[in-house]
């Protein structure tokens, strides 16, 4: 048996064990199902949510705002990262503020945004944009600072314009870091949307979590968490897939 097959087999066995323990251990210990629902409880609750709680619409809404927030936030982060990367002056001037904003807990802005924009989609979109923005910006900026100076000099010696140097040398050089930033950002995007929906929403999986929590319906909360994870994994997988195609020229690392 090849090592890859063994790995898969072991991983699946662990999953099966966890599900089995989840199904049988809490009832055996007398834990009530509003504290820890069993796997079958969750599945039947999933069916009820599908019929009664508009599960599909809520999931799609969350997925849509995750994607939208991720797209806007990473586009802004990349654009400003590249602009600052091109200007040492502005990078130096703005970097302390960027650091401060980067450290500030972005999700804590959610109540403010609700006060400003009301109970609609804008606050959760803003939280997501804000949370996605920084890892992309920081990765791009760091990469711009470490572009091989000799490569830039080579392009200069070939009389390339500033724009050509950016397009042909700097941007492709920073692509691995940009992709790494996007990957980190994709996992944060789900958090941004969820917090936005938890704090002040009437749609989405985050809303179902707070609604389910209020009803002591643990199965509903668990289901929403699982679906949020699935959305995050999907986005992350698309990025990994894109990265493998874009960065095919990098030799594969031997593990």
């Amino acid at each position: 048996m090849s090592q890859a097959t063994t790995q898969k087999l072991v991983a699946l066995t662990i999953l099966a064990l966890v599900l089995l323990v989840w199904q049988f251990l809490p009832p055996a210990l007398g834990v009530p199902k509003f504290i820890i629902p069993t796997v079958t409880d969750m599945l039947s609750e999933l069916g009820r949510m599908y019929r009664r709680e508009d599960l599909v619409a809520n999931t799609l809404s969350t997925a849509w705002y995750t994607l939208l927030g991720f797209a806007i936030g990473s586009a802004l982060g990349a654009a400003i990262g590249y602009l600052l990367g091109l200007s040492e002056f502005w990078e130096r001037v703005l970097s302390p503020y960027i650091l401060a904003l980067q450290i500030a807990p972005k999700v804590a802005f959610a109540p403010l945004f609700i006060m400003w924009f009301g109970y609609n989609a804008t606050p959760k979109l803003l939280v997501t944009v804000l949370i996605v923005f920084f890892p992309v910006l920081v990765n791009v900026l760091a990469a711009m600072k470490t572009v091989d100076r000799d490569m830039v000099n080579l392009a200069r010696a070939y009389s390339m314009t500033r724009w050509q140097i950016f397009k042909k040398v700097e941007f492709p050089s920073t692509l691995p870091n940009l992709m790494a930033g996007l990957r980190i950002a994709s996992t944060l995007a789900v958090i941004g949307v969820t917090v936005g929906e938890l704090v002040g929403g009437n749609t989405g999986l985050g809303f179902l979590i707070s609604y389910g929590g209020g009803q002591a319906n643990a199965a509903m909360v668990f289901n929403a968490i699982v679906l949020l994870t699935v959305i995050g994994i999907l986005l992350y997988s698309v990025l990994v897939w894109a990265e493998e195609r874009l960065l095919h020229y990098l030799p594969k690392k031997e593990h």
């Binding site: 010696a157 040398v169 492709p172």
Partner: peptide
């Protein structure tokens, strides 16, 4: 200024890895 009639090569090959 950078002279289009001069070519230079370093110890590093400076090939663009994505091309």
């Amino acid at each position: 200024k950078p002279n289009p009639h001069v070519g230079f090569m370093l110890q590093k090959d400076l090939l663009l890895p994505w091309r």
